[in-house]
Amino acid sequence: MAETGTPPGTLDEAHVALGTVWFLVARAMVAAGGEEAIHKQSAGGLYAQAVLGLTEDECIAAKDPGHCAPLTLVDAVSMLETMPLESGEKLLTGLIMLSFMDRRMSPMEARLVSIVASALDLTPKEVEECCLSARVLADVLAPPGLRDRFRGQALGGPGPAKGPGSS
C-alpha cells in the first residue's frame, strides 16, 4: 500500500507540529469565510498531504482533539513566529488559496492573512509571492467543476458576494 512521506504507522513529530498549526489556521480561515463548504475543507486536507508533505496518520494526529482542543489562535500565532520561513510561506500560501476558493476575500479573511504574515515577518514582496503560488494551487487543487468556474470567470466577472464591505 503506497503512502506519502513517512511510512505508515510512524509519526514525524515535526510534521505533526506543522500539521497542528496548519489545521488551526485553516480552520480559522474556513470559519472566517463564514461558510464551511466541503470543497474548502477537502482542499485544506489535500494541501496538507500534497504540499506540506504530511501523511494521513500525521494529519489525523495533528487534528486529534486531545492534542489540539486546548490550543487557541494565539497559540497558533506563537508557533508561526518560530517557524522556518519556507514552512511559514507554505502555510500562508495555503491560507490564501483556501480564501480564494470562493473568489472573494472578506475583511475577516484579510485580517487572518495579515496576522499570519505579520507573525511570519514577511515582506509585502514575499506575500505577493505567496499569492502567486496560491493562485496556481487554487487551480490545481480545485475539484473539476470549480476549476472550470475559475477559468470561466475573467477578472471582474461575477463571483459570489462574500460579506459586506470586502476591503
Partner: peptide, 21 residues
C-alpha cells in the same frame, strides 16, 4: 494600528486568469 494586507490587491492577483499568469 497594525495594517492589514490590501485585500483588493490580493484579489486582483487571485482573479488573474491562470493562462494569463
Amino acid at each position: 494600528g497594525e495594517t492589514s494586507i490590501d485585500a483588493e490587491t490580493v484579489e486582483i492577483m487571485m482573479m488573474l486568469e491562470l493562462e494569463q499568469l
